[in-house]
């Protein structure tokens, strides 16, 4: 491919190739603080390709087809101006379909004193925004999209990629953050407006450090404040639903989730706004930590 970049995020390494320069330049700027990958000496876990929909279309109509080791054949192409998002989606896709070294949970995660708060919920639950805000308020951001549960140790590993902020969450989560850590505003993506946030220096420097899971939070945005404990069985079901590789891992995945729900209390938390959820999280954490 004409342009390429190597990236390490948490335990995973990526080779990203692109037919165009733009997406690679945008990635290089935002991932500048991450450890570089030298392909002369490292074999990346995954290859992502940003390629024209058809070979001769590179100049005619700039549409990006996201391809790589693992791909969805019927994925809709993306506009070239959303190249940064396309690269992020390509990397996410490799993790979601190809990662086998941990149980991959679709969850955000923050850490304090070696203990992890794992936050899972459907799209719109606010898990990404919540993790981003906690990451600027005394917690270490471990990831806004994936948490990696190690079947052998029961520990959670970080995957602190760029935080993907959508629509109204953009202003809330980027307040007070220096412009170098904020990506371009991408308008009109399939998910509306998107802006990427670079995790802070501590989150990147300590991205290889795992943490012991201490609390599982299941938030719902847009409701009056309320919380209830979640039974082990329900937590187990929610985690299997939140995992993209649970079935692929077989018995190891089963054992890891059984251990997780038996040792980590789970709480469902409804909240109406960010101030409420931040206070509620600190209060719940005080009870378990």
């Amino acid at each position: 491919m004409r342009h390429q970049l190597g990236l390490a995020v948490g335990p995973a390494t990526f080779r990203i190739g692109s037919a165009w320069r733009g997406p690679i330049d945008a990635l290089a700027r935002l991932y500048a603080a991450y450890p570089p990958i030298d392909f002369a000496r490292r074999v990346p876990d995954f290859t992502v390709r940003l390629q024209p929909v058809q070979p001769w279309r590179r100049f005619i109509r700039s549409s990006i087809f996201i391809a790589g080791d693992h791909m969805l054949p019927d994925a809709a192409p993306m506009a070239l101006e959303h190249g940064l998002l396309a690269a992020e989606m390509g990397m996410n896709l490799q993790m979601a379909l190809g990662w086998r070294r941990h149980v991959l949970l679709h969850a955000s995660c923050v850490e304090k004193d070696g203990k992890a708060l794992v936050i899972t919920g459907e799209s719109g639950s606010g898990k990404s925004t919540l993790a981003a805000m906690l990451g600027e308020r005394g917690w270490r951001l471990m990831g806004d999209e994936f948490a990696l549960l190690d079947p052998a140790s029961g520990m959670v590993f970080a995957f602190p990629r760029l935080v993907s902020l959508k629509n109204e969450a953009i202003d809330i989560a980027t307040a007070g953050i220096t412009p170098e850590r904020i990506g371009p505003r991408l308008e009109g993506t399939p998910k509306g407006a998107i802006r990427h946030l670079v995790p802070n220096a501590e989150a990147i420097a300590r991205m290889a450090e795992p943490a012991v899971p201490r609390l599982l939070l299941l938030p719902r945005y847009g409701f009056a404040e309320a919380h209830r404990p979640v039974e082990q069985g329900e937590a187990f079901v929610r985690l299997t639903e939140a995992s993209t590789n649970y079935i692929a891992l077989g018995e190891a995945g089963f054992g890891a989730l059984v251990r997780f729900v038996r040792t980590v209390p789970a709480v469902a938390l409804d909240y109406p706004d960010s101030a409420t959820v931040l206070a509620a999280v600190e209060a719940l954490w005080g009870e378990v930590a």
């Binding site: 039974e231 082990q232 069985g233 187990f236 089963f254 059984v258 729900v261 038996r262």
Partner: peptide
């Protein structure tokens, strides 16, 4: 078989 509270996994 693993017991998880009221149900078995």
């Amino acid at each position: 078989v693993e017991r998880l509270g009221a149900i078995d996994a």
